[in-house]
Amino acid sequence: MGFKLLSKLLVYLTASIMAIASPLAFSVDSSGEYPTVSEIPVGEVRLYQIADGVWSHIATQSFDGAVYPSNGLIVRDGDELLLIDTAWGAKNTAALLAEIEKQIGLPVTRAVSTHFHDDRVGGVDVLRAAGVATYASPSTRRLAEVEGNEIPTHSLEGLSSSGDAVRFGPVELFYPGAAHSTDNLIVYVPSASVLYGGCAIYELSRTSAGNVADADLAEWPTSIERIQQHYPEAQFVIPGHGLPGGLDLLKHTTNVVKAHTNRSVVE
Rank of each mutant, 00 (worst) to 15 (best):
L83M: 10
Y48K: 10
S38L: 11
S22P: 14
G2A: 09
G65H: 10
G210L: 06
A213W: 07
L81Y: 02
V11R: 10
T109W: 06
L10P: 15
V121H: 04
S30P: 11
T109L: 09
W220F: 05
R167V: 11
G2N: 15
G198A: 06
V256F: 06
L24Q: 12
N255I: 10
A25V: 13
Q103S: 14
S38I: 08
A178Y: 07
E219G: 07
P152R: 00
P69T: 15
A98W: 13
S27T: 12
L9H: 11
E101L: 08
Y202M: 15
G72N: 02
H117I: 00
I84K: 00
A94W: 11
L127Y: 03
A66K: 13
V146Q: 14
R141Q: 13
R128E: 13
I84Q: 00
A213G: 10
S205E: 14
I238V: 10
P41L: 10
G123A: 03
L243Q: 15
T261L: 13
D214M: 05
A130D: 06
G163N: 08
L204C: 06
G2I: 07
T60Q: 12
I50E: 03
G89H: 00
A59N: 11
T222S: 13
T182P: 14
G122D: 09
P244K: 02
P190A: 09
D29N: 10
S162F: 11
G32D: 10
V124K: 02
A136H: 04
A25T: 13
Q228R: 12
A98V: 14
V112R: 04
R167M: 12
T153Q: 14
L6I: 09
N149Q: 10
G177K: 02
P152N: 01
A144Q: 01
S208K: 10
G240N: 05
R206V: 12
Y175F: 11
Y68L: 12
I224Y: 01
N71Y: 04
S113L: 05
Q49D: 11
V11M: 07
A19C: 14
A21G: 13
R206Y: 07
T254W: 14
E267K: 13
L159I: 10
W220E: 00
G53M: 08
V11E: 08
P232R: 09
A133H: 13
L73Y: 00
D183A: 01
H252N: 08
N262F: 10
A15M: 10
Y196H: 07
E39F: 10
V75E: 03
T114D: 02
S161T: 14
N255R: 12
H57F: 03
F174W: 01
V54D: 04
H180I: 01
T114N: 03
F116M: 06
A51L: 05
A144F: 03
E267C: 03
D77R: 03
A165C: 07
A218P: 09
H57E: 00
N92K: 05
H252G: 01
L204Q: 11
I224H: 01
Y34N: 07
W55P: 01
A66N: 15
L96S: 00
E219I: 09
I17C: 13
F3P: 06
G177N: 02
D214R: 05
G163P: 02
S162R: 14
H241A: 00
K91N: 14
K251C: 07
R142D: 11
G43K: 06
D118L: 06
S193L: 14
P221M: 09
L6W: 10
S205M: 09
A51V: 13
N71I: 04
G177T: 01
Q61L: 07
L173T: 04
V75D: 05
A144D: 02
N211K: 08
N255P: 05
I84M: 07
R46L: 10
F26S: 13
L24W: 07
H252T: 02
V124H: 05
L173E: 02
